[in-house]
Amino acid sequence: MQSHLLSISDLSKEEAFQILDTAEELRKISDGPMKKLPTLRGRTVVNLFYEDSTRTRISFESAAKRLSADVINFSAKGSSVSKGESLKDTAQTLQAIGADAVIIRHGASGAAQRLADSGWISASVINAGDGTHEHPTQALLDAFTIRSHFPDFAADFTGLRVAIVGDILHSRVARSNVLLLAKMGASVTLVAPPTLVPVGAEKWPVKISYDLDSILPDIDVVMMLRVQQERMTNFFFPSAREYSRAFGLTNSRLALLQPKTIVMHPGPMNRGLEISAESADSTKSVVLEQVANGVLVRMAVLYTLLGGLPLNAGTERKS
């Protein structure tokens, strides 16, 4: 595996499963007495966040700290970035202070790749969400969560049926999940109003449906996407209520799901819009597991990219 994680397309199927297996090992270790591993001691990880995202930032921060890395949070707000400093200058500054990994969240699609390919920086670059392009660690933590609920598919997702519902057009979570789930063998159906399906998605490895009710009874996983408020001003759908009626996971739709089906959401949720409170809080909902798994999967990604000490180094010393 290369030293960056920019897109799910950077990963082979084997590498993707390897990351999930590593996360599984880390879960076992985390359940033990020694929560913090010395693996990345002396390494510097920078959280470079050009967009507000407290959840993703603290998830990465927590993952890095549990591997004993030094963490620097660099928020674009209130920094030189908001005064017009270019991505290049920021990158070279991080290079000068000796960053080993840069976790970047940016509003522009391709910003992470730009950082990795430009030659401005030698650190590993991890894409924590770039515009409407990708959010690969979210897809990995989603796959990890799915796997923990469907042990029959632990080594291969072939036969697993996943529906991704909502604003596909603007969703980096959807793009990464489509690529990863297809790579792992799952059959994926996108459900959205036609206005929120990108032109070109007909060539993606998915089925596309505009009818949520017909899809829900025959799936294992339903993944709801957040609907941004600003979509309502650009004619993507007539009103929040109409969207919710047609594409929300309402209480009546929750009843259509099979007993084993799980409900996922990358957060933050718009309760009452794309998901009802009862659906979000139901026993089918794994939203909080996703958050917890996020830390494990991001630990696994950092461990894999930065090539730290063997996983059991800390526990060995203890024993």
């Binding site: 770039d130 515009g131 392009h133 990708e134 980096r172 793009r175 032109v199 070109g200």
Partner: peptide, 18 residues
């Protein structure tokens, strides 16, 4: 708009210029 609207823009997440 950032690039031609089509399969490549759908993958790259860049706003399409149809």
């Amino acid at each position: 708009a950032q690039m031609n609207e089509g399969y490549v823009s759908s993958l790259l997440g860049l706003t399409g210029w149809p």
